[in-house]
Design a protein around this nucleic acid. Structure first.
Lengths: 117, 117
DNA sequence: TTTAACTATCGTTATTCGACGATAAACGAA
DNA sequence: TTCGTTTATCGTCGAATAACGATAGTTAAA
């Protein structure tokens, strides 16, 4: 099920880091909601300075989360769907553990910690 | 399928931020691999100073990703499985979009950006 | 060629992060 | 009570982040 789950801690952390800002989450959601590519309207939508948004886009591109294609005067941004799969795999492992051992509180064991050494 | 998907950008970013460090990914993987709770061996396993690991654990606890139960002299840490579901939902949306519109490169459109305005 | 529109880069500043050692706190055992 | 074990907190320092304005680069259109 997991295509490639064993990425390094550093690589997984880098993916998470790319998502670790409200503006970048917003950008991802924008790209998710649009069927077509969008350029500069991202800046307007986010509500931060153009240079700031450009920096966030640079971070997302550096992490491979989004891709930018130069298109006329603007840039066509789109999600790179494969880039988030490694993080998805890790979260899936957590979810799988949840279905097997978790109680209703979502905790794996602390309510009955007799298994602790 | 999504129990609660519409968390704020800030909340989702906070979850991602908790994962945005190699040591914290490593801690999560440790908690994932152990069936029983573990305490101080996390420190030894991570290889950083005890105070540093404690700080990472504090961050994970503050984000709700792990829970700590006081157990004798040590603390029994465990994953809070529900805490990661919101981020999981967002990534699932991306994955869903991947299966519907993506090409083999994982990009949603830049190779044929004629849909850009 | 010049202009207009859009994006990237640079320089700066304030804030946050990560790591460490030192120290404090909690508590069972001696 | 005193000691030993384990974890949390504090103070500090250097590095990284986030935000902005100003500026430079790119390219279609005039």
């Amino acid at each position: 099920m997991n295509t490639e789950n064993d990425l390094s801690n550093e690589q997984l952390a880098a993916i998470a880091k790319a998502l670790a800002h409200p503006a970048r989450i917003q950008i991802i959601r924008l790209l998710l909601s649009k069927t077509s590519c969008i350029g500069g309207e991202i800046t307007h939508e986010v509500g931060l300075a153009q240079s700031t948004v450009s920096e966030h886009l640079r971070i997302l591109k550096a992490a491979g989360v989004v891709a930018g294609e130069i298109e006329h005067p603007r840039v066509c941004y789109s999600l790179n769907l494969n880039s988030l799969l490694p993080l998805m795999s890790l979260l899936q492992l957590v979810a799988d553990k949840a279905t097997t051992v978790a109680g209703s509180d979502g905790l794996c064991c602390p309510l009955t910690p007799q298994s602790c050494d």
